[in-house]
């Protein structure tokens, strides 16, 4: 691998960008996600999760058992906005997704 090797193919984040994030203090996948968008594309980190964890473990010397998996959020799969937005025949999905939002986040 070299610095230009793509790690997150959805967002085209390379090895160097992940190492830079670790240099400024990233220790988890979520740290790197927030700094680089790594793992935020269509596959939602399915492909890069292991690769990123290995890099974190190698660069920080934390064993893999101390590199937590990313926090996943609803919806688990990319779905069409029309699926969410239509009052579907048997269920109003927008309402139910909004029901999951914590009160303090809504303000």
């Amino acid at each position: 691998m070299d610095n230009t090797t793509i790690i997150c193919r959805c967002e085209e984040i390379n090895q160097e960008e992940i190492e830079e994030a670790i240099q400024i203090g990233a220790e988890t996948f979520d740290d790197i996600k927030r700094l680089t968008r790594c793992g935020m594309g269509p596959c939602q980190s399915k492909i890069c999760m292991n690769l990123v964890s290995s890099i974190i473990s190698e660069k920080t010397s934390h064993p893999l058992s101390q590199v937590p998996v990313p926090r996943l959020r609803i919806p688990l799969r990319p779905i069409q906005i029309s699926t969410l937005a239509t009052g579907s025949s048997n269920f109003s999905s927008v309402k139910s997704v909004m029901d999951e939002v914590e009160l303090d986040e809504r303000r």
Partner: peptide
């Protein structure tokens, strides 16, 4: 695609979520 607060599973077929 998700889990509701009351424990029900959110299932999608790409047209509806139920």
């Amino acid at each position: 695609i998700g889990l509701y607060e009351n424990g029900e599973m959110g299932i999608s077929n790409d047209r509806d979520v139920f």
